[in-house]
């Protein structure tokens, strides 16, 4: 290699590095957008005679983020691996029921109730993963099918809330550590665990690899099937945890608590809003939490302003599309660079 050639390499390398430092990654973008939204929201709500960011307002945003956050963190992992999970909404309901009915008001059954609910979730995740990897059914169809099966089961066996959790268990849903609700801490803890899994562990690396290009991953010796199944199980367990948390808040299990809130599409929206590529291989939970906070903040602002629900959905839709368009643009310019 000639000396001169190396010199060119070095200088272009330096300019590239500089460019990267100031470039907006999706994660940075989403948090900047969140700050902008908080500012704009404060002004709007302020003009309306209210206050967005007082303690109650902040708590409101955080509480709204809890359940969606749990589900979306799990969803992030499956999406990064190139799959997706549409069964989470029914799973949240199912797990709230399993937990509440197992506990049946008795303190001694709290631990078995939680474990059983998470166990059921893990099995559902395992089924999702195996249908995708072994039967090679497209994830969209596979998890939609599992969602329908869960719905059939719930419709057949429940007409409304069932089971009850003991008072002691309701602390999970309502207590605070200092100013912060336990639920929020739980959600952040799960997010931190997912972050560690994705960014620090070998299976996490493989999650990105499989989502980036399954064939390349397989050629490199990655156990692709196992990676995808694990992602589905983790996603389902996170949704199960959301169900358990809701049982604690509601005092009983509720079959449609997940679907009423639309956690399936909502979680995917949060993930995408957070900058994770729907095609897989890129993204992370930090962005997802940002996405969840944006959605929760929007909701809080709309409630404060008493906007009608139709308009609310329109704005959410626009936000989502604009965000994804922005990320796509960034990708284009980088390609041609």
């Amino acid at each position: 290699m000639s000396v001169v050639h190396e010199k060119i390499e070095l200088t272009t390398g330096a300019t590239r590095r500089r460019a990267r430092r100031i470039s907006l990654t999706p994660t940075v973008t989403v948090y900047l957008a969140l700050v902008a939204l908080l500012v704009a929201g404060s002004v709007l709500v302020g003009l309306n005679g209210g206050v967005l960011l007082d303690q109650g307002g902040i708590l409101n945003i955080l509480t709204r983020s809890t359940v969606l956050g749990l589900v979306a963190v799990g969803q992030t992992i499956v999406i990064i691996t190139g799959s997706l999970d549409l069964s989470v909404a029914y799973l949240v309901g199912l797990c709230s029921l399993v937990a509440a009915q197992t506990m049946a008001g008795s303190d001694g059954m709290i631990v078995p109730g939680v474990l059983l609910a998470l166990g059921v979730a893990a099995v559902v995740g395992l089924v999702n993963g195996l249908v995708v990897t072994v039967l090679k059914v497209n994830a969209f169809i596979a998890t939609l099918g599992v969602a329908l099966i869960l719905r059939g089961y719930l419709e057949q066996n429940y007409t409304g809330p069932a089971g009850s959790v003991p008072r002691a268990f309701q602390h999970l849903g309502f207590d605070r550590v200092g100013p912060i609700p336990i639920g929020v801490l739980l959600m952040l803890l799960v997010a931190a665990a997912a972050w560690f899994y994705l960014k620090r562990t070998r299976p996490g690396y493989h999650t990105y690899a499989v989502g980036g290009d399954v064939d390349v991953a397989r050629l490199s010796g990655v156990r692709t099937g196992r990676t995808i199944v694990t992602a589905h199980v983790l996603c389902a367990v996170a949704a199960g945890l959301a169900g358990v948390f809701l049982a604690s808040r509601l005092g009983s299990g509720a079959p449609y608590v997940g679907t009423d809130a639309g956690y399936d599409l909502e979680s995917i929206a949060a993930v995408v809003l957070g900058g994770t590529a729907l095609a897989g291989g890129r993204g992370g939970v930090v962005g997802t939490i940002g996405g969840v906070l944006i959605l929760a903040t929007l909701d809080t602002i709309f409630d404060d302003l008493a906007v009608d629900p139709f308009f609310k959905d329109v704005v959410r839709g626009i936000v989502l599309i604009v965000a994804v368009a922005l990320y796509a643009r960034r990708k284009l310019t980088r390609r041609s660079a």
Partner: peptide
């Protein structure tokens, strides 16, 4: 057989 969005080192040691 490289992952475009991962780093050189991540690609070299992929799977190992």
């Amino acid at each position: 057989t490289l992952l475009e969005h991962r780093t050189v080192a991540e690609n070299v040691y992929l799977g190992r």
